[in-house]
Simulated assay, not measured.
Amino acid sequence: MNFRMFIFLAISLSCMISFTFGCVEANALGKCRVSLGEMCVYAPEGDSRNNCYASRDRICLKMSCTCKEGWILDTETGSCYTIVMQILNWNSAQSNCASLVPNATLAIVKNSHDENFIIDILWGIGTTGFWLGGSDSAVEGRWIWPDGSSVSYTDWHIYEPNNIGNQDCLKITSSNHPLPSRTNNMKWDDLDCEEELPSLCKY
C-alpha cells in the first residue's frame, strides 16, 4: 500500500467515525480539519500533500458534522442554522443566538449559496421578516457582519437600503411592503434596530 492510499484510507476511516457519532460540539468541523491536517503533514511535499489537504477539507465539510439538535445543516458548507420565532430587537436577537451555541451569531450571508439556502429555510413562514447579522450602526453605509467582515455579497430589495428613520440593521423579508415587486420575492431591507422580529441564527 503506497503512502497516498494509506492517507486516503486513514482520512476516510476518521471521517466515517466522525459521521457516525456526529458533532458533539460546535467546533467539531474545525477540529476535524485540524486533526486530519496534522496527519497530512506526513505526506511527501507536492501533489501527495496537496491531495491529502483537499481530501481533508472535502470530507470534513461533507461528513464530519451534524448540527446541534434543532439546527439545520447546510451540507455544502458545514454551517448550521436555527429559526428563532421569538420576536426580539436586533441586539437582543444577536445575544440570543450567542446563548444557544458557542460562536453562533445572527446569520451571515457570504454568497448566493448562503442566500438560497436561507430562503429555502424561511420561505412560507408567515412573518414580516427575520433578522440577519448585518448592521451599519457603527458607520452609516458601511455594512458589516457579526464577525467583523464587510458585507460584500448583497441582495437588497429595490430602493434599499434607504435608512429611513435611522435604519441600521438587516432583515430578510418578502411581504413587509405593499409594492408588488416585494411580494413573493425574499430579499433584504434595512430596519430600525429596535424593531422586534423573529431571527435566524447560524454557526
Rank of each mutant, 00 (worst) to 15 (best):
F3C: 14
R4S: 15
F6I: 13
I7N: 00
L9N: 13
A10M: 11
I17S: 07
S18W: 12
T20I: 09
V24L: 09
N27H: 06
A28G: 06
A28N: 08
C32S: 02
C32Q: 10
V34A: 04
E38H: 07
C40P: 06
C40R: 01
V41F: 10
N50L: 11
Y53G: 05
S55N: 11
S55G: 02
D57L: 10
D57M: 08
R58H: 05
I59T: 04
L61G: 05
M63T: 08
S64Q: 12
S64I: 04
T66M: 12
C67P: 03
C67V: 04
G70V: 03
G70N: 02
D74S: 10
C80D: 04
C80E: 09
T82I: 08
N89Y: 09
S92K: 14
N96D: 12
S99V: 09
V101Q: 08
V101G: 02
I108T: 10
I108G: 02
H113S: 02
H113W: 09
H113P: 01
D114C: 03
F117Q: 00
I118Y: 04
I118K: 06
D120T: 07
I121C: 05
I125L: 11
T127H: 07
F130W: 12
G134N: 04
D136G: 01
V139E: 10
V139I: 14
R142S: 13
P146I: 05
S149Q: 05
T154E: 07
H157C: 07
Y159K: 11
N162C: 12
N162D: 15
N163K: 01
G165W: 06
Q167S: 15
Q167L: 01
D168G: 04
L170C: 02
K171Y: 09
S175L: 04
S175N: 15
N176Q: 07
S181Y: 07
R182C: 09
M186N: 02
M186E: 00
K187H: 09
K187R: 15
W188Q: 02
D189W: 11
D189N: 14
D189T: 03
C193G: 10
E194Y: 12
E196R: 13
S199A: 15
C201I: 03
